[in-house]
Design a protein around this nucleic acid. Sequence first.
RNA 1: GCCUCCAUAGUCUAGCGGUCCAGGACGCCGCCCUCUCAAGGCGGAAACACGGGUUCGAGUCCCGUUGGAGGUACCA
Length: 485
Amino acid sequence: MQQVRTRFAPSPTGYLHLGGLRTALYTWLLARKYNGRFILRIEDTDQEREVPGSVELIYKSMRQAGLTYDEGPDVGGDYGPYIQSQRKDTYLPYALQLIESGHAYPCFCTKEELDKRRAETTQRGDTWKYDKKCLSIPKEEAKRRMESGESYVIRQNIPATGTAGFDDILYGHVEVSCDTLDDNVLIKADGLPTYNFANVIDDHLMAISHVTRGTEYLSSAPKYNLLYSALGWTPPLYIHLPVVMKDATRKLSKRHGDPSFEDLLEMGYLREAIINFIALLGWSPGTDQEFFTLEELIEAFDETTLNKSPAIFNMDKLTWFNTEYIRRLPFEEYLELATPWFDKTLQGVEIDYKRLAELMQSRTEVFNRIPDMVAFLKEVPEYEVGLYINKRSKTTVENSKEALEFILPVIEGIEPWSEPVIHDALMGAIADSGRKNGAVLWPLRIALSGQQSTPGGAVEIACLLGKEESILRIQKALKKLAAEV
RNA sequence: GCCUCCAUAGUCUAGCGGUCCAGGACGCCGCCCUCUCAAGGCGGAAACACGGGUUCGAGUCCCGUUGGAGGUACCA
């Protein structure tokens, strides 16, 4: 088997969206699985759509994702340059060769003319296809006009009859009738190639063995194979990947507010979780294993068992993966990652971050949810006294007030202020008084936090807050309750 | 409209003719644990789109219908 060389070829039009990330991942996996080479190529032949800075963003995202490439614009390689606009001069000779052999021809129709003719055709209800008008221009005349500086494009000359097809590792053999194919533009008026041409030339010149790309290219692949054979080249193996959807009918798109890879990282999703989730979106190892490192993915990946239908991106499942990965983080790493998020609402408050992190690690789903969860440590939020009413603990507004009055002196007497001491003091006093734990601890948590769900229980919260602050909060709560009774 | 592709629960999927009255995961619901939440333990509801074939036998093969996706640019 020849050396496996795969390529990820994004256009620099903005962020790396998740469908792109998945394509990149599978392409990378394929190369790594066969000890091949993974190449990054930038397809920037449409200069109008190019977004400044996005090339750098692609490099950065690839690194963050852990998808190292062996050849690419910023790492070099023997098949460069890897940015198509820098390869401008390599395409025209091949196009001229195709004109020579009759597989292409120059076209002098202007965009305006074409738009008009297209509009007329579709208005009649007919299917538009370029009518090969310029094909009938005698070669000598065409040559003269090209050299005279007249604006022109070069079109592929699709045979009027017969069929064209290609083989896909996933979809098998796909064959279409040539009369459904259009004479696409190969070289634009600005001299740059279209995707339709550049992908063929570059994939061949860069010795790409497997072409992986989205299914948006599935229906034009037969045309590309026509080009390969006109040039006398062997086409690569194809793997077309289904699109990633946001729901049953719409695809995921940054433009419609769906997060990009970068967005997810900023929100506090771990890269390992994103990769793991993405890998399983449209592919299954065939076993029940669901947690994979990149290394394990290389081992388990099988390009022939990819799913052929579009998959819907499920945020809940991603979040579940993230929660699991966060839980498995070494504690020190969690503390380091969580600290800036604690700071967002606890800046300036004296809180034992280490203890807080211990309480928070198993409760963190996404890092950006941390600030809201810990904000009560800085300040008790506004709350209704109804919070004191709890069925299971059998608490009411009245007996909560009584419970707090009972426990306040106990708390005032606790020394030193540490979790075990607080715990034993409270439990002892509650037991001695013949009360139920919940009857006292529930109101206490409400008084301390102003919310019914907190990371840790009353004891942990009290300890984090400190003795003075705890007492202050209980006194304040008593005032609030007194006003109600 | 035309061309191509796809079709198992709400979602991601296993299944490649009998071992499937369909397995796993997320989500959802219930119970246990418990000072809350989370975690953990136990349990539950939930799918082969439809109609024809082929076959002793079909989720699995074929055809059609329906539904969905992609394409139909001097965008990729």
